[in-house]
Design a protein around this nucleic acid. Structure first.
Lengths: 249, 249
DNA sequence: TCCGGGATTTGATCCAAATCAAAACCCGTG
DNA sequence: CACGGGTTTTGATTTGGATCAAATCCCGGA
């Protein structure tokens, strides 16, 4: 992406600051912004809000007013069925945009819960729409973000519909690894912010199954696990595990 | 939704014609359009394309140039995994918009296959983005459509992650029923355009399981099935079936 | 109309993951 | 620093759906 006309190096610097302020590189960095757009994004992105571990960012059924970009921390979103069943629909970290589900009906369709103390940027949807009207590249980028969520969902469906327990867990660990790497953290060593039960819910499995699979990976020297700390020892073997009708161990 | 200022009854008529031409009520009817917008939508929506049963509308990996609104017919979209596994990610009918997955990377991330002879309207993405820039209410509506797809996906995840075989099938039948009803067709009697195997793929089950569950529903007088023809006898019982840890029959 | 191949049904058996159960562990808190 | 509740591990058993197998059905094409 070449730098945009009318965007001085100083502007670029300010933009990066504004965006990194809110970990919004996802949302605004790729958009070519002029001076005015820059200021507008600045303003848009400035409402911060801290959330304590265990607190809800929003609840299913609540009215939509804003989207939320995660600045720091870790969250989950859960879909609920009236009968009380619930399913973790995703885990979200720094830079992720949450609340897209609510645009369709102006009501949130899932719960968002902080898995550790976090901070988000509130982005009023109306302002975002206005701004992406004024800045076409922002509009495009916003569309890409929504589309990416759809693609992610398709991946989860494939996982839930066709994979065996160990494949699912391997895919999950590799996905986390990638996402940490993309944010400049270690791709091989990280802390699971969620419980075994939450992993299980996300992967359509029970917590015991998660625990057993982790133990097996450990035994086979694919990973090291101690509580919530995970170290990936053999990334390749983990990758190879996906797509095997049954283990070749 | 009150009628828009500057939109004469004749305009409304033309708009409805233009939209129903392509079954695009989803895409443009709710948007308040002025005379000029109207003409633009007309133009945007005018590229028709027939597809024969079994043909691909697009394939995973192909470049994105257009979205597609289904005018008539029935399609499926399938996500593929490199190892050959595939999963039906959705079934699409009249009025549905396909191709949203491709916006994120300008490449299609799934296959789209016609399950019967169909006709779609090709909507060049660039033109749609331009137009939704010119017509804010169209922009909003487009966002809602993408968001709705995300919500739908969450529902599928819940289904795949938490429901038992019979619950999944009941949910599937009820969903089809609703969608047919919304399009003015019978909500109780319809033709399955897909095979048992495709239903199974969508629901994360094997074709034999689908067949058995359909038979059981038939035995219990919830539905009548003969080949691909389905008649729902006891909609309430079918609804009640969802959310039962195990059958109360 | 008859033929052939895919689609569907149904049965028997198997197996991966769920469930039930209990012990161990870990961490935050008083 | 000991207590207590939630989390995790591990084992034994059960089970829902997969798999294997075979008969039947149905529809499109010659």
């Amino acid at each position: 992406m070449p730098s945009q006309p009318g965007l001085s190096p100083i502007d670029v610097q300010r933009l990066k600051t504004a965006c990194s302020t809110c970990s919004l590189r996802e949302l605004c960095l790729p958009a070519g912004l002029d001076q005015r757009g820059l200021e507008q994004v600045d303003r848009l992105v400035n409402r911060r809000r801290p959330i304590r571990r265990g607190d809800y960012l929003y609840r299913s059924g609540a009215g939509l007013d804003s989207l939320y970009a995660i600045r720091t921390g870790f969250m989950k979103s859960c879909v609920l069925h009236e009968d009380g069943r619930e399913q973790v629909a995703g885990f979200h970290m720094m830079g992720d945009l949450m609340g897209l589900d609510a645009i369709s009906s102006s009501r949130h369709m899932c719960d968002a819960v902080a898995l550790e103390d976090s901070e988000v940027c509130e982005i009023p949807l109306a302002a975002l729409e206005q701004l992406s009207h004024d800045i076409p590249s922002l509009q495009q980028h916003f569309h890409r973000i929504m589309s990416r969520e759809i693609v992610r969902d398709y991946g989860v469906m494939l996982l839930l519909g066709t994979m065996r327990a160990e494949e699912r867990l391997a895919a999950f660990l590799l996905n986390l690894s990638q996402r940490f790497a993309a944010r400049g953290y270690s791709s091989t060593e990280f802390h699971l912010r969620m419980t075994r039960e939450e992993i299980g819910s996300y992967l359509g499995l029970k917590l015991e199954t998660i625990s057993r699979a982790l133990s097996r990976f450990h035994e086979e020297n694919l990973i090291e696990v101690r509580n919530k700390h995970v170290k990936i020892i053999d990334m390749e073997a983990l990758r190879g595990l996906i797509g095997q009708p049954s283990g070749a161990s």
